[in-house]
Design a protein around this nucleic acid. Sequence first.
DNA 1: ACCGGTGAGTAGGAAATCCGAACTCACCAT
DNA 2: ATGGTGAGTTCGGATTTCCTACTCACCGGT
Lengths: 157, 157
Amino acid sequence: MAASTKDPRPCSIADALALVGEKYSLLVLREVCLGNGRFDQLVRNIGAPRDILATRLRRLVDAGILTKRVYSERPQRFEYRPTQAGLELEPVLLTLMAWGDRHLRPDDDRPMVVEHICGNEMLPVVTCAACGAPVHHEDLAAHPQTPGWTVTGPTAA
Amino acid sequence: MAASTKDPRPCSIADALALVGEKYSLLVLREVCLGNGRFDQLVRNIGAPRDILATRLRRLVDAGILTKRVYSERPQRFEYRPTQAGLELEPVLLTLMAWGDRHLRPDDDRPMVVEHICGNEMLPVVTCAACGAPVHHEDLAAHPQTPGWTVTGPTAA
DNA sequence: ACCGGTGAGTAGGAAATCCGAACTCACCAT
DNA sequence: ATGGTGAGTTCGGATTTCCTACTCACCGGT
């Protein structure tokens, strides 16, 4: 049935990246989460070509990650905003930003600091919903659900 | 000085994506974290063209995210493994996978389940390091550190 | 010694994407 | 009437990606 060559491991990471993994897509989401949802703001803040940006926006709207809302009839003007699904990607952005701050900037010149409502700077920590412990690679065991797709490493089934 | 057109917002998300945001890069990291670090395994499990994969691997090794280690001299064979920096990207993958499971698969056909050492299934939650609360968009305030780069939204400075 | 198989890539041309700049169209301001 | 803004679209050319095939080194069986 299915060909032997060319059907990669079924995976939600791959599926997610197929949607938001194209160049600029996650930066669009960043700006939109910051409240900068207008076309020309996006062009300036992201540095993307206008046609590519238009394509990305269409795709993200179609995927239900963004909505396009009119904020002015007569001159008709639009603004893009995150949907619930879009907002749920924000933790990914925050985690990625923290990683970049840690590994791509030796000194403390972080271009942006996020403040949490608790009054402190927000440093994201990924934890296990069940036990609350911060996630450590050694504490994980991956169980593929599709027959034929194994894992070989220390994280074997 | 700096040109008026074309210098996007300085941002660690953008920097991080410049490194690991190219097609397949994060899938390479996924496989490597699963312990499948050999070239042909990567080709099969990811479905990437061999030449592109070779390019990505070089880049990730150069960036200090992966290491290439010999696991057999005489037939010389290599295996790619995550460095500490690479492992610290795993939470990003887990969060992205959970998002994909939630939003891209209505029913419960998750292709992979991750088990935490606590005995339960690992569902990642991004929390604030300072207060431990799960991160909610409304609880965040972004403060750009570079003059001229503002945020307009509800998350204004 | 020969044959087939595996691992780790390279080579080459076709196909898809991306890019920058210019263009449109509708509206408002002076 | 002229200029400016917002939101795109259109264009040709540059850059990447893709796919298939090829290499090279080695191993295992007969």
